[in-house]
Design a protein around this nucleic acid. Structure first.
Lengths: 345, 345
DNA sequence: TTGAAAGCGCTAACAC
DNA sequence: GTGTTAGCGCTTTCAA
């Protein structure tokens, strides 16, 4: 069933059918009705490939995501897909994993499929070394590239992010204000936002520590889901003699592991041991006591990401970088402070 | 940059370029090299739309998923996307929500986009009423439809599932064998697999209860992520005078809520209160004590789903229905039984 | 308001 | 082994 069949049955030319299909004004009401009737009756739908060929777009956006089963990334993908479809765009999903080569490969595939834009979900796509980000710049030469949670100063690359540095800085200050000095920073990613978070922690710590003393940080390499391995990691740190009574985690899963660790060590939380997580995911409510965590306004970020992208696709000038601030959500793993106490001297 | 440009620069016809592109044998090594050089040098990539139009496929599979931010569904989507891409297929993701109309709409969109097949992730796509499943049958008239975790006896619809009925039946028997009689079944979905699980629970209970006494079941309607609301729901049940010392949950989130509930009520788990969850997700390791849960082998299901789909697309005859059995993973929320005790008299 | 016809860029059947 | 050419099904000038 093609446009020719319809035009024939309706006794008009294919051009007229095409006009009806595309809602052109210059078709008489009578003709339109006749054509619509035939279309309805035949259950005809235009061939998307042919249309794509003519218009050079199939209204599809490529979404790249290292691991869409990660709680946080999955939510982002979900928001993004929903909002895109609300605007008539389809989403081509590509779960790339964390390996650079795989990312480059996926990126090329998406470009080959002629998507109208690419969204990088998660800051792990942006590397520290300029050369490792060339694949993004190359893609951006073809289509607009949106980056969630990371910034890149590259033409046609747009960033939407939360101010992770400041969020972490404030969280650290707050824990310090609560009287905890031996804080361990527990993280599992050296991504763009991972680096910002770490820097925020270090900045706050260095204001308080004696000069020359480095803040404690621990990098966890294992599976992002293996809470037991995270707990083991913390125990190993302790067994090596590094003592800590507070953990600031780059992620709620790590934070939850810290809560479990505290329980296993017999610490009372938050009296003897404090924890702050990141992302304010459902995990924060899954442990006991519940986890204080930083909300980075994911849905807002995604909304802005999409509206920026749509603007670009319409040819509008849009901001290259949009930054929102995060917010600490206090629960049971941190001591509540009197308002004046939250300010450090 | 088109195939014409390449053919011209290489001094051959477009047919030859096309042959090189598609790895045809009947091209002399010399010509092939020349063409490849030009392609490389120009950075040419074939236009996917034109190709799609000619071949009538763009090697794309539509993935429908009510909520890809759900822990379980997200994992399924992840596995499926990975395996598809491993076989050269792209994934068009559509998060439909739980509303029937939205599902019908999304399904049509995917068909319109001319995907090669559709995968329904999660049993909530299959309704109890035959007429509500017409949209699936209609789609299946166009392309193969794969259903994860639900069965449908419809041409061109293929089901891959875990035996939820038996898993739940066994889990319930095991809790009964542990000496708990006042078990509450806590669920939040009347999907296909939701109905099977419920039936498994009821069957096991009815073997033990006095005739005429109905097993306790509670349906939770709230957000799938709101653990607090789930706990409140359980408290409300208790406040209405229904007492229970065991919870079998249709989902780990509900199970985790039951563990929280027990803690808030001051029950010792598992001595005074038992819980079994479902899906064996990371949540099972997030609560204290850790949650006994049923593993339904999601990755295996997804693997078989994909290989079945690929078989169908190659024109092979494939099984309409594939069933795997689940497995109970025992953790801290159930009493461990001596082997002979696990058998009920 | 309508129609004829020229692309869009590729594949594949057929001829050489 | 290589080239010619006819589609694939649509959009969009340009004329009428």
């Amino acid at each position: 069933m093609t446009i020719y069949d319809i035009s024939e049955k309706a006794g008009v030319s294919i051009a007229t059918v095409s006009r009806v299909l595309n809602g052109s004004q210059s078709v008489s009401e009578k003709t339109r009705q006749k054509v619509l009737d035939v279309i309805e009756q035949c259950g005809y739908t235009p061939n998307a490939f042919a249309r794509g060929l003519g218009l050079n777009t199939m209204k599809t956006i490529g979404i790249m995501c290292a691991d869409s089963s990660d709680l946080y990334l999955a939510k982002a993908v979900y928001y993004i897909e929903q909002k895109l479809r609300g605007h008539g765009y389809d989403s081509l999903l590509s779960c790339t994993g964390y390996d650079l080569e795989a990312k480059e490969y996926s990126m090329n595939l998406l470009i080959t499929k002629k998507v109208d834009g690419i969204i990088l979900v998660g800051s792990n796509f942006v590397y520290e070394r300029e050369t490792d980000n060339r694949y993004i710049a190359e893609a951006a030469a073809q289509v607009p590239v949106m980056v969630l949670n990371a910034a890149m100063d590259t033409p046609n690359v747009y960033s939407i992010m939360s101010d992770d540095y400041t969020s972490m800085y404030n969280a650290t200050r707050e824990m310090l204000a609560g009287g905890i000095r031996d804080i361990l920073y527990f993280y599992n990613s050296r991504s763009y936002s991972g680096r910002k978070k770490l820097a925020g922690f270090q900045a706050a710590m260095e204001e308080q520590l004696l000069p020359g003393i480095a803040p404690s940080v621990e990098f966890y390499r294992g599976s992002h889901e293996d809470v037991h391995a995270m707990v083991r990691h913390l125990k190993a740190v302790r067994d090596k003699g590094k003592s800590f009574h507070g953990v600031i985690a780059a992620d709620d899963t790590l934070g939850l592991a810290a809560v479990k660790y505290a329980a296993e060590m017999g610490y009372r939380v938050p009296e003897e041991f404090s924890v702050i997580g990141y992302n304010n995911s459902m995990l924060a409510c899954c442990c006991q006591p519940e986890l204080t965590s930083i909300d980075n306004k994911l849905e807002t970020l995604c909304e802005h990401l999409i509206s920026t992208l749509l603007g670009i696709l319409e040819g509008k000038e849009m901001p290259k970088k949009t930054v929102f601030s995060g917010e600490i959500v206090r629960r049971g793993t941190t001591r509540s402070l009197a308002p004046e106490q939250t300010k450090l001297s």
